[in-house]
Design a protein around this nucleic acid. Structure first.
Lengths: 346, 346
DNA sequence: CTGTTAGCGCTTTCAG
DNA sequence: CTGAAAGCGCTAACAG
């Protein structure tokens, strides 16, 4: 009922104006860093603000000014370190611009996602950052038509021509696969991510290309379709290991699944990397913490967040369309979960 | 510059009112679930809203209504799964109440933290959820005086008598330590968390009490002060292992440090748990994924988030003071990083 | 350089 | 049960 009573008598620009002996418009100018204020006046206002402990009301500024100075972040999940890293980057960039971040988690519910986007685009936020959108076609079109600023993170899909930042997934997968091949592996299992995601598709393509380039026949049985969750890695590894002619290495489309693979491999009494090499993708913090430390393809997660935020802020500021896609480089991080295959037959 | 032009002609309650043939006040009533509207009229308004695709402007509602329907979440970090779990819980509860979540990350910067809190309490959010606050004394007093709604999560400190949810840290540490003792361990190393945090203190106390209860002399050399980060675990384990009479088990105050301990132990060629048992605290997702799976004390993170959100919403709704502290139970999760000690001497 | 005048879109009395 | 009127705190032209 009673929220703040006598204790905080609601200091508005009017109070500040009175205290400083100017009109409230001048106070507004000071707040907004308007150049057309005599520096002497400015100082007077500033100190009045200090004295009164004035804090601008964001809501009112938004309503009047037409912008909220907050951006919305739509993420599927927060379970793994994956998103956390991205947020760290976004956050860094945003604090520079004094913007707030509203977090919307969809928990992998596509319906919720589309719903959010529809409502978000109204008043609450000035722009949207969409991480790993599930079925962007649903709303990208709407967003674009309304000319609503947004940037896609880690998504390369069918949608063309909209601002996005991602990583070189194809290249990363290619490099990792080739590394395995150079180690001497001939049968390399692959566990895909959610194939409705562009990044998952690209990783699979990278794997295939590396095989092709190195004249290693592709075997359908060696490709297991997962969904980026740990159990998929476990199940995939089991399926792969049950093959008459099992792989000597398994490349999982993300680190979380790679850890599932590790579990499965160990449960069968096989050693890593002696009996089987394992490679992941992402380089999430815990990939260095498992045993043995996971060889993986690093995505510049934090940087992706930073760049995406920069892009969005830029669009917001300059009204530029900027329908470019930025690809940040991936990098193979070699740790201890990979080695040359030992002759299993001999 | 041009944000949304002809494409989205800005549907306000006025447009809806016209479409439905009522006054805009009636539309407002419908939006706010006011009972004093003929159901027939309500239906007319509702369908008009549908047709026009009306979405309420949150900013305006806030300004006029005096509340923003968003709550602020202040967290130190997002790196580990720890916070992610809590957020999941908060999020679940909030979506029930149709509230938004504004995320503020302090990245362990105390100054930033206090600063945020000061500003937050003004217009932007209706209430605050503070996870693992660093130096709450700075602003708890302010918040309380202003009668600003907030709930502390996972913090039991010197500040008395304010709404908070935490876990039974003392009990958890006690139980885990006793488990180790029952396994036959006599020398148990302990790595503390940041000792400015109440939870860290309680865990240490739990450890000590268990020792005392079981008539095991406490040795200062067996307690290493850490800061909840992985390197602390590593360094702590090294220090402990360098002792003339090293421990046969190490209890780290959180899982992340426990993983650091694992690293250190392995680097010395010792086996887990044969040569040394390791216990963590938190039960973050990856604690089950490392090798060997970590024995740890589970904190009901998700539930803590849910309960905290409930408390806050309750305060917001009923204006209740509710200065209670809720403690959720911890639970010992026994996995494979612990076993009876082997005779190292013999 | 500074004050005046309108609203932003909605909630809330207060009258009917 | 519904309409009219008065702001919420601030920005943004427009005049000085």
């Amino acid at each position: 009922m009673t929220k703040n009573e006598k204790s905080s008598p609601k200091i508005t620009i009017f109070e500040v104006a009175a205290e400083a002996g100017v009109s409230f418009a001048t106070v507004s100018r000071v707040i907004n860093h308007d150049i057309h204020v005599k520096s002497e006046t400015r100082d007077r206002v500033l100190s009045a603000m200090q004295r009164l402990g004035y804090v601008a009301n964001r809501q009112a500024r938004s309503l009047a000014g037409g912008k909220s100075n907050t951006i919305g972040l739509l993420v599927p999940d927060l379970g793994t370190g994956y998103i956390g890293e991205i947020i760290r980057g976004i956050d860094t960039e945003l604090s520079w611009s004094e913007m707030d971040l509203i977090l919307y988690t969809t928990h992998r519910t596509a319906a919720k996602e589309a719903n959010y986007v529809a409502n978000l685009a109204r008043g609450m936020v000035d722009g949207l950052l969409l991480v790993l959108p599930r079925n962007p076609v649903d709303y990208i079109e709407t967003l674009t038509r309304r000319n609503f600023p947004f940037v896609l993170i880690d998504h390369q899909g069918t949608v063309e021509n909209c601002p996005a930042v991602g990583a070189t997934n194809w290249q990363g997968a290619y490099t990792a696969t080739e590394y395995l091949i150079q180690l001497g592996h001939k049968r390399i299992g692959f566990i895909t991510g959610s194939m409705d995601l562009g990044c998952a598709e690209d990783r699979l393509k990278g794997y295939r290309s590396a095989l092709r380039t190195n004249h290693i026949p592709e075997a359908a049985e060696l490709i297991y379709e997962g969904n980026f969750f740990q159990p998929d890695g476990y199940a995939g590894a089991c399926a792969l290991l049950d093959l008459k002619n099992p792989p000597t290495a398994i490349f999982a489309s993300n680190d979380v699944m790679a850890m599932g693979v590790m579990d499965a491999v160990r449960n069968r009494g096989l050693r890593i990397p002696d009996d089987i090499s394992i490679v992941g993708f992402d380089n999430i913090p815990q990939s260095a913490m498992v045993y043995p430390p996971l060889t993986t393809v690093q995505q510049p997660l934090e940087q992706m967040g930073r760049v995406a935020a920069q892009m969005l802020i830029n669009i917001l500021k300059n009204g530029e369309k900027d329908s470019s896609r930025i690809e940040l480089p991936t990098e193979l991080i070699i740790r201890s979960s990979t080695s040359s295959p030992r002759d299993r037959v001999g």
